[in-house]
Amino acid sequence: MTETQGHGNQEGHAPGSKFGMVIDLDKCTGCGACMVACMAENNVPTKPDETNKLDTITWMRVFKLSNGKAFPDAETCYLPRPCMHCGGKHDAGHSPCVSVCPATATDYSYKTGIVSQIYTRCFGCRYCMGACPYHARYFNWWDPKWPADMKNYLSPDVSVRMRGVVEKCSFCFHRYQRAMDLAYYEERELEENEYQTACTQACPAGAITFGDLNNEDHMVYKVTHEESEGDEILRGRTPFRLLEELETNPKVYYLSGRDWVVKAGNASVREEAKAVKDTGGHH
């Protein structure tokens, strides 16, 4: 998944795609389909007991937020959190995690804007995990294991990871490669619907929109630039990103009409009483 792979710079294709996501938090029901789809698509191993979310791997994790108020004012919001594929300060590609990796095992692609993880090169120092404020990176504390029959369902497009390395959401990069191969063979550009992440397609509420943030024809561009074509999704709301103030430049945008949810995204605009994470649910 390094610069040398993919065909982002093929002739006639806009150089420098920037793939990103818009997640409508008012649509998310917290069903967890995105998490399940992600785990199946990306060969994420499981443990017999997955209750401790601090040592289990969930590339896509749904947080359950509460406004901390009592009935009848209590409100809940489910917040899916994939890797943010941060562009870093000034969107120059110096993501918090990429710049710290001592062995160049994680890289920022200027052709796709995707932050890659090279599993066979990672030696497990976990510095990137410390650097990521979103806790989007996971360490393989155990040998990867699947129930016997499930091994037959592993995707051949995604390598399984070994104990002792870090992994994270790749925006289903193998899907990009597959789509690009076909587009290249047919000598045409990539269509918006050809490259979609597993979580996007699995969401029954249609809460996730995925595409190229640099491509004016893509819905994510229209939504994030608040253009009228995006009105159907925007519905008067302003997109925000988590911890925008830290200049991490994430590529995942969120939408919510609820003020307390927007304020939960950034400390600089947070409410007096912090939004609290509920126990139970999807944790």
């Binding site: 710049s99 990796c101 001592p102 062995a103 160049t104 095992a105 090169r121 990672c122 030696f123 497990g124 120092c125 976990r126 360490f139 393989n140 070994m162 104990r163 002792g164 390395v165 870090v166």
Partner: peptide, 14 residues
């Protein structure tokens, strides 16, 4: 996590 790959820090130095 992967002690046998410790030398990567020198070889693939960032």
């Amino acid at each position: 996590g992967q002690p046998l790959r410790g030398w990567f820090i020198f070889w693939h130095a960032n």
